[in-house]
Design a protein around this nucleic acid. Structure first.
Lengths: 350, 350
DNA sequence: CGCAAGATTTAAAACGTTTTCATGATTCGA
DNA sequence: TCGAATCATGAAAACGTTTTAAATCTTGCG
């Protein structure tokens, strides 16, 4: 109980403390229990009698108690925070939105929060993970744009810090990931172009250095080799290129000899830019040429419904990543449970 | 470095503590100073001798010390965190990206971090700010989609919690904001349509309920009234509508009597959807109709350069919001320093 | 009735800071 | 030379929680 023995200074011992935010002590005073007991009761420890647990819970709700995260964090070393490394490139057309939305969904109802560490300024991406681990800013990390020998993965694996990547690596140490099967996507998309009678598909691929870029190219090449047709991987541009550059490059390509007659675009903006470049040359989609693209939002369908697409559900991806990371943090070590390869949904009428 | 002196149990008194993360005590032990002094020295307190400060700083860097944010937070009550409330609507075409990028820039070099509270699931937006303030998750909040009588603003003003809005309110209590002058934007954009000889501009406006929607409409109306021409505010759709809906609505409108001959679009996706709807009807931009739009990325220019635009620099907006919030947190109460109205850059050739 | 074995509860230490208050050195003016 | 003022440092408490170890209260059993 409070301590009325010192009447002199402001009696900030017992009840006066009840002015500010309610704390464990507030509940302890109200119920007449010890702080320890209250803490245990709220943690649903089995050693605390059911009756006491009930009463404590009741009072906690009554006075609107919520634990001080800073104190919990200090004591336990756990932050209850998930950090998402976001790259500026990932945002155009709401990549980030979808991913974040999915992660939020997975974390709902848990005590975890998302914190976004934008790589918007600064530094290599490995510095960001170092920063997070060194300052213990989070209990786990999520990031994408994974490279075959991704330094972030190496660092985090090394120290055993929980993480999930969007995309795979080629490292021998297995780790948690969620990936979209870009090989199958590219393979099927390219086959579709060929099935429509096109004889020289062009690939607008991912930026060099990322694992998924390799998968895209592999799928594309497999399809064209199978069909034995001509092909081209458009040089000088990639999915990260500004739309204007893609447009210019496509237009320019058509002034040269032996241009492609169809395009496999890894993204929606890329598809739009390609269409624009082509119509600059007086060519119309579905007529002189075709496009198949990956679709991650609903923009393309509304603007250019003639473009055929295969959908990648990034919100689901985010949700999977959140769920997997939670498992990993929870101590799951069985990698088979921590590795997800999502299959492209091929349209039924193909 | 480690300490091989105690092979038995870990005598976690002195040096053994040096195993884990370096702390103030680690530095204190190395330098022979008291923890208090080290803390003060790192805070550059003037009462600590320059020489001591130097030495402490040196050791701190040497051993890679960085303060435990949880402990600081617990002690001081300050979180060193800025919360950004993000709405899913705000993301298409990277609204969030730009804003976040700007905020990051403003916070760079400070001890502040950004945490994104997605409203992706749940609840009214006022619950999100309640959650943040109740759990003291941040020292300040940033949000947009401001309403004339925004409940978030009322709640936060009430309790004196620092915040900055993107957009103004019509509340009598002044508060920090950064806003784009949407009245002027809409006024000039509409005048431009009229100057090009159009006689019935249509406005595709913001969603009902937001302050900026009113500003857009006011600017639009002012321009058409001045010119004494016909006008229309397209019903049934707004800037939040899916692109497909906008497209459909525009096309449908053209099957009816007395259609508009030009459009004032508050966003890029909206402009693209409008163009698509119009070409569905066989009409081409710059020929049978014109569009003026607000531009916040570089997509539109690459895809449809014929659309005339006025630019809104969202990265700069984010940076301003970050800076203003920092001032507000720092105790600035002079609202004139906390309120920014950004002027649209009207193209020189208009 | 007495005591061991559970069943509950509690006291106290600890996490790493910051801060209040005090203390030991210097220096200074007279 | 003696306090007084200034300067530089330290000891200890506190923030709100979790956790270790111990204390207290019930029971059940002989």
């Amino acid at each position: 109980m409070a301590d009325p023995s010192k009447p002199a200074r402001s009696e900030d011992n017992g009840l006066a403390a009840r002015r500010g935010k309610p704390t464990l002590r507030t509940i302890a005073e109200i119920t007449g229990l010890a702080v320890t007991t209250v803490s245990r009761a709220l943690a649903e420890a089995p050693q605390i009698s059911a009756e006491t647990r009930r009463r404590v819970r009741e009072v906690a709700i009554e006075i609107g108690y919520s634990p001080d995260r800073a104190a919990q964090r200090l004591k336990t070393g756990r932050t209850n925070v998930i950090a998402v490394l976001l790259d500026p490139h990932e945002e155009i057309l709401g990549y980030g939105t979808s991913i974040m939305s999915g992660i939020s969904k997975a974390l709902q109802g848990t005590s975890y929060h998302v914190i976004v560490m934008p790589n918007f300024l600064n530094t290599t991406n490995v510095e960001a993970v170092n920063y997070i681990t060194r300052n213990s800013m989070a209990d786990g990390v999520i990031f994408s744009r994974t490279e075959p020998l991704d330094p972030r993965v190496m660092v985090l694996s090394e120290i055993g810090f929980p993480f999930v990547t969007h995309g795979r690596t080629e490292l021998s140490t297995p780790h948690a990931y969620v990936d979209y099967d870009n090989f199958t996507f590219a393979y099927q998309a390219t086959r579709r172009l060929i099935a429509k009678g096109r004889r020289k598909p062009a690939l607008i691929s991912g930026p060099a250095g990322f694992t998924f870029t390799g998968h895209l190219q592999h799928g594309f090449m497999t399809a064209v080799r199978e069909a034995g047709c001509a092909y081209e991987i458009l040089s000088g541009i990639d999915l990260d290129s500004p739309a204007g550059n893609i447009r210019d490059r496509v237009r320019q390509r058509y002034t040269e000899a032996d241009p492609p007659d169809s395009f496999m675009c890894g993204g929606e903006v890329c598809a739009l830019a390609t269409i624009t470049g082509m119509s600059d040359c007086g060519l119309t989609l579905g007529n002189e040429y075709d496009i198949v693209a990956k679709q991650t939002s609903h923009l393309l369908g509304a603007i250019q419904p003639q473009v055929e697409t295969i959908y990648e559900d990034l919100t689901a991806t985010g949700e999977d990543m959140g769920r997997v990371l939670l498992q990993r943090i929870g101590g799951e070590t069985d990698v088979s449970k921590l590795q997800l390869l999502l299959s492209p949904q091929i349209p039924a009428n193909w």
